[in-house]
Structures are given as structure tokens and as C-alpha cells.
Simulated scan of single mutants.
Amino acid sequence: MNAVIRLACALAVALGLAGCYVYPYPAPVPVDPMEQPFAAATGALQDVGLTVVTADRSTGTLRGTRGNVEGIIEVRMRPDGRVGVEMKARDPDNKAPGLTDRMAEAYNRRMGR
């Protein structure tokens, strides 16, 4: 009797698995390595109080202004495949000292660093 129960259980499992179908795993969607750094740079300009006036994804250049103060962030792919970020500030009247450092801090915060 014990052998009959085992056979019945094995048959039930085999029939249950016969109805299963394994779907192919979809290929991962390629992620643009510039996407997160570009978004973080845009947010960083806003975080330091600048209005984003230029955000050109094709060149990786972002520009934000507030009066005569201007912050520029360039996001570029390096030859080694890593993303490079360069920040500059123009402040002719010295109204926003340390702007480049504040942009870098805001950018790093948004990148989770």
C-alpha cells in the first residue's frame, strides 16, 4: 500500500510539472550610463538655487543662472568608459562664494556619495 501511495504522489507531481511552462527571461534594457549623472547634475544646480537655462543631453552641458551668477556642469563619457563631471562657476560680483564646492556637494549627495 505504501508503494502505491508513493507511485500516486510521483505521478501527481509529474503531471503537475507537465503543465508548467518556463517563459524566457527578457533581455535587460540597456541603461544609459549618462542618465543618472545628468539628472544629478540638473538637480544639483537647482539645489544651490540656480535656474537651469540649458540642459543639452547631446553635449552633456548644463547651465544654471541666478542674476550674474552662473554655474556650468559638463557630464562627459571618458575614453575608459567612465563618466566624468566638471563643474565651473562664474561669479563676477562675488555674490555666491564657494558655488563650485556647493554644486559638487549637491551632486555627490544626489549620486548617493
Rank of each mutant, 00 (worst) to 15 (best):
A106R: 03
E35T: 08
A44K: 09
I72F: 00
G84T: 05
N68Y: 10
K88F: 13
V48L: 03
V31I: 14
G84N: 07
P30E: 14
N108C: 08
V13I: 15
I72S: 01
G81C: 08
M1G: 13
P37V: 11
P33I: 12
Q46I: 06
T65F: 01
V48K: 01
E35I: 00
R109M: 09
R90V: 10
P30W: 07
A40R: 02
A40T: 02
T54G: 02
M103V: 12
R63E: 15
V85N: 04
V53S: 08
G43T: 07
D91E: 02
M34A: 13
A40Y: 02
C9I: 15
L99S: 12
P97T: 07
A89I: 02
A39M: 04
Y21V: 15
A41L: 00
L15V: 14
P24L: 08
A27T: 11
M111F: 07
L50V: 03
V85H: 07
D93L: 13
T65P: 00
R82A: 11
V75F: 11
R90M: 09
R78D: 08
A41R: 03
V29K: 07
A41Q: 04
E86G: 12
S58G: 04
A96W: 04
V83Q: 02
G16R: 01
A40E: 01
Q46H: 07
E70H: 00
P26V: 11
P24E: 14
G71I: 07
P33K: 10
R78Y: 06
L11D: 02
R66F: 02
T65Y: 03
P26E: 09
P30R: 08
P24S: 14
G98Q: 06
G81Y: 05
K88Q: 14
A89Y: 01
G98T: 11
F38K: 02
A39V: 09
V22G: 07
A40D: 01
L17F: 15
R110V: 05
P24K: 11
A27Q: 03
R63K: 15
G60E: 04
T59D: 03
Y23L: 13
V4G: 01
P37S: 10
G19E: 07
E74R: 13
P26I: 11
G112F: 10
R82T: 15
V75G: 05
P97E: 07
L17C: 15
M34P: 06
L15R: 05
A14D: 01
V52I: 02
P28K: 10
E35Q: 13
N108K: 13
G98Y: 04
R82C: 00
N94K: 07
L17Y: 13
P30N: 09
N108E: 05
L45K: 06
G81I: 10
V69Y: 00
A27S: 12
R113I: 02
I73Y: 04
M77D: 01
Y21D: 05
V4L: 12
D32S: 12
M111W: 03
Y25M: 12
G84C: 06
T42G: 06
V69Q: 06
Y23H: 11
P26N: 12
R6Y: 13
R66V: 08
G19A: 14
I73H: 05
M87P: 01
A55T: 09
S58R: 14
R90N: 12
P37I: 13
R82H: 12
K95F: 07
D91L: 01
L7H: 03
A41V: 10
